[in-house]
Design a protein around this nucleic acid. Sequence first.
DNA 1: TCTTTTTCTTGACATAAGTCAAGGCAAAGA
DNA 2: TCTTTGCCTTGACTTATGTCAAGAAAAAGA
Lengths: 229, 229
Amino acid sequence: MKNIFEIVSTVPLFDGLSDDQLNEIKKIALSKRFNKGETIFSEGDPGNGFYVVAEGLVKIYKVSSEGKEQILHIFGIGEPFGEVPVFTGQPFPANAEAIAGSHLLFFPRADFVDLITGNPALSLSMLAVLSMRLRQFTVQIENLSLKEVPGRLASYLLYLADEQGKEDSVTLDISKSQLASLLGTIPETLSRIFAKMTDMKLIEVSGRKIKLVDRSGLMHVGEHGKSGE
Amino acid sequence: MKNIFEIVSTVPLFDGLSDDQLNEIKKIALSKRFNKGETIFSEGDPGNGFYVVAEGLVKIYKVSSEGKEQILHIFGIGEPFGEVPVFTGQPFPANAEAIAGSHLLFFPRADFVDLITGNPALSLSMLAVLSMRLRQFTVQIENLSLKEVPGRLASYLLYLADEQGKEDSVTLDISKSQLASLLGTIPETLSRIFAKMTDMKLIEVSGRKIKLVDRSGLMHVGEHGKSGE
DNA sequence: TCTTTTTCTTGACATAAGTCAAGGCAAAGA
DNA sequence: TCTTTGCCTTGACTTATGTCAAGAAAAAGA
């Protein structure tokens, strides 16, 4: 079993640090393991540090009083999460759960703040990470508030295709129920929209594989005319 | 006319800096003035620096292809905005407009990055600002996705009461149309909900003054039972 | 392989909230 | 003060999406 601290040198957040500095990072990191479905932290918990995914997949989400879930992020290998309380001193604003068996690196707050204080490159890197995340939230709010579900799905599929470097076919890395939660809807609605978009010959769905039949059609879903009908 | 650079020493972002450091800050700041309704920057513009409100009120917003507007933030005196591009190098993800005549301080990117590089207190302060903003977005996404409009309005009124330090009465600092946009809805819907909540004796509305008649009722709007009916 | 459990899909229905349109009110300017 | 302009309110209607329920398909386990 290989040393999971090796991941540190490949994490974008730690890019541009010297070997010495990377060793400092590794020194303060703790390894933690979570099974699929296990809670990593809950909203309201004190944030004593943040995490980096060494292996696995983690969802960050909120739950309404009626039990509906909204996923805020899904983080994979190399991505940090749970940093907000490190810098605000307040508790976690959302929940985190492993959606696959996961190895995580945990960075205790005080140690990390010490490190960042003497390390401008690291602090600029962290500022960039938080800024990118703000940008993503901006997009998510725009999607939730200004687009209907078909438009959100189309955007997500195009984003995935880009992410996966594939032109015309993507593979969902999460279940369709989870995708519904990420898009701010429920499985029934998502299912109907998959069916509708298939009818319209925009996509072809088989399990978690989705073929993008008409990319330019997808790009205009939800504009003036119909998104489906 | 007083020196608007005086504001620098009262901005939370610059808390804990020495007088020398505050002078450095003042040295790189530029004063800009915007009239009510004037655009400060637009989505897609390159971000050559960020702003701090010295006087006035600024809205950050997105617009859909159909023309619907979603306000992301409203910033008042002492609050910084437009920092994301400073640290990501990407263009602005949203638009900014003065909703009242405003004096702003502008901090050019390169100068500010130099400053932050040699100044751990400033960088931690900026990390705290971005983290707080992430937390706010978390709440906004939760509201948009997990609450109906009455629940969002109730939350906003309670938040405002807290903000204004008043127990049972608040004054809107923005128009009701703008409030609708902030809550992710349209003026017609907001107007109906104000009427409904008045009927239910939760609030009393007269112009921009709103009396919170039943705080505990407000807190439970949108839970199990009715939010209005 | 067969069974059990979860996830997904589809139908019938309810409802929150958007659209369109008209009128009333209030703030800004003459 | 009067007038003009934009903001707010209300009504009638449409529609996207949620709820409830049942069955089908797929995944996990025996």
